[in-house]
Structures are given as C-alpha cells and as structure tokens.
Write a protein that binds this DNA or RNA. Sequence first.
DNA 1: GACCAGGCACATC
DNA 2: GATGTGCATGGT
Length: 217
Amino acid sequence: MDIYHRLNAFFGPRHWWPGDSPFEVMVGAILTQNTSWRNVEKAIDNLSRLALLTPEAIEAAPTDTLAQALRPSGYYNIKKDRLLSLVRLVLENGRGGADPEILRWPISKLRSALLEVKGIGPETADSIVLYAANKPSFVVDLYTRRLFSRHGLILGSESYQDIRSWFMENLVCDAALFNQYHALIVAAGNKLCKPKTPLCNMCPLGDDVFLDESLLV
DNA sequence: GACCAGGCACATC
DNA sequence: GATGTGCATGGT
C-alpha cells in the first residue's frame, strides 16, 4: 500500500482545519507558527470572547488588548503585528468579514500576495491557501520533514520549495487530497513520530518504506 | 528543569 | 546559500 493510504487507514479522516470561518483559519495559521495548537486554541478563544474574529474588529481593537488576547500562543507581540499586516492585506482588497474576498483569488495571485505580507512565510501562506481558501497548495511543515526524512524519502535539508514541488509533482492536484494528506502527516508527527523516538515501532509506515515507494497510487 | 511546539525575519559569514 | 538568533507561552 502506498504512503497516503497507510496513513489514511491508520488515522482516518482528520477533518482539518479546525475553525468556524475562513478568517478564523487565517488567524490560526499565524498563531500556530512554531506553537502547539493547544496554545493557539486558548488565544482564539480569547479573540472569540472579545469578538475579534473579523479583520475589521482586529484592526479597530486597541493593540494592547489584541496582544494580551494572543498571549497564550506565545510570541504575542510579533504575532499581533503579523495579524495586523494580514488584516491590512484583506481590508485593502475587497470585502473582509468572516470570509474575505481575497480567498476567491486564483492560487498564484493569492499565494504571492500572502508571501509579501511581513510575517507570512511559505508554510503559513500555503496553510491559508489550502485550509482557508480551499485551493490545492501543498503544505510542508516540520512534521513533513521529520516523517519523510526518517523513512529515507527525503534528506530533510531540502528547501521548502523543493519539498513542496516533490509532493505536488507526484500527487493529483486536489485540495481535498492535500488537505487530508497534510493532516495525516501532522497526526503521525503529533502522536507517533516524535523527536526522541527516531524509529517508532507503532509507526503506520512501519520500517519497510522504500525510496521508490509512491506517495499515492 | 530541559525539551518541544502545525515559523519567520534579520544579521552575519 | 548556509547558519545562528530573537521572539514567549504552556504541556510533557
């Protein structure tokens, strides 16, 4: 069985990304930078209680209030600025609200616009394109590098672009597939493929993944 | 108390 | 192009 189906059989449907609206997904993508999702949830709960889950509300909020709401997710001063930068992009380009207009843009236009925002790098941009806009852009993260390098499929030191291209050239271009695949990789990384357990005997990929094994048949 | 978490910008070589 | 550092909270 190929890699995707092994993971899928083990973990089942992941229903990513958790969030009540596309804009909340965008916010989560910023807040989860180098941060566990558990802590991000606390910050999003704070924003929700303060009714700060629209771009308009975030822009209008006192910056101190915003920063304090973000505290549980760490790097709260930086993330406050990054959220405001993202909000600015949204509000300068059409309807804001819970489902911003820019999410209708074509993938390449949306992705490059996001990458020009200070504080949004390739992973955050791809997370927004895939999980907020529901368009096929593969997300590469720490867990992707760890899982696939540990099984000898990549070195792990490749550039973000190289790894993303490798996935996208070897997969059918489909948002639902990219969505579930990345979610499965994170599930494996969170639950089994931990930093201090290089070879996990519970890994659904087992120890018999070979260099030529396909990502998806 | 050390290590880790769904990164990114910036300085330096 | 590669490597190092600051940013910060909360769980294990």
